[in-house]
Simulated assay, not measured.
Amino acid sequence: MTIKTFDAFSRLSIIDINRITNFLFEYSDDVRDTKSAIRKSVLYAAKEVPGLGGYVFVMEHNNDIIGATVVNRTGMNEYIPENILVYIAVKTAFREKGIAKALIKHTIKYCDGDISIHINKDNPVVELFEKQGFKSRNIEMRLVRN
């Protein structure tokens, strides 16, 4: 299985944006973001909205998405990583088969600069990220204004 890479130069169609958004909404276990929020990150990565863009990595099997990752570029370095791995998800039936590992390795290879990810400390996938070289460094605290 190959990983398709989308960015500002290899545009996503509206159909693909919707497919990826729906996939991430359904299979991102650790994330409780709205479909709207997920869609915004995909649109930002694909440079369909103003910003620095980023990358969307998709793995398919028989034209069905089985894994996806969204990375947004920050335009910063040293004090904030240049890239934020916003979403990663693997279809339930394909978990424990190396899909997430392949997506993480592809992300590391493809992205220039540091990469950060926000992840729940109790999520078992933390170990997978640690095995790929990610280190716990900070905790995030957020003031949410509704």
Rank of each mutant, 00 (worst) to 15 (best):
P50D: 15
M59G: 11
S13Y: 10
E127C: 00
E82Y: 02
I119G: 00
F9T: 13
N146H: 05
D64A: 13
M141V: 08
V58W: 04
I17A: 07
Y79N: 08
A8E: 08
K35M: 15
I117M: 07
N77Q: 13
Y110R: 13
V42N: 03
Y55G: 01
G133D: 05
T2H: 14
L52K: 13
N123H: 08
R145F: 03
E140Y: 01
M76F: 02
N22A: 11
Y27I: 05
P81Y: 01
E82K: 05
R73L: 14
K101L: 10
V90Y: 02
A100V: 05
F134Y: 10
Y79S: 06
L103A: 05
A46S: 13
G133E: 04
R73N: 06
D122S: 11
S28Y: 05
K121C: 05
V86W: 02
T34D: 15
G133C: 12
R32G: 14
I38E: 06
K4Q: 15
F6G: 03
I15S: 11
G54N: 11
D33P: 02
G53F: 06
F25T: 08
A100C: 13
V49I: 15
M1I: 06
I99A: 06
G113I: 02
D33S: 12
N72W: 01
T69R: 03
G53Q: 10
G133F: 04
N138Q: 07
F94M: 14
M141L: 13
I20P: 00
R145L: 09
F23R: 05
K35P: 03
D114Q: 03
G98Y: 10
F6R: 02
E130V: 00
V144P: 00
I104R: 01
G75L: 08
I38R: 04
S136Q: 12
L128H: 00
N123M: 09
L85M: 15
V49S: 06
F25E: 12
F129W: 04
C111M: 15
S28M: 13
D30Y: 07
A93G: 13
F134S: 02
I117W: 01
K135P: 00
D64Y: 10
I14T: 15
D30N: 12
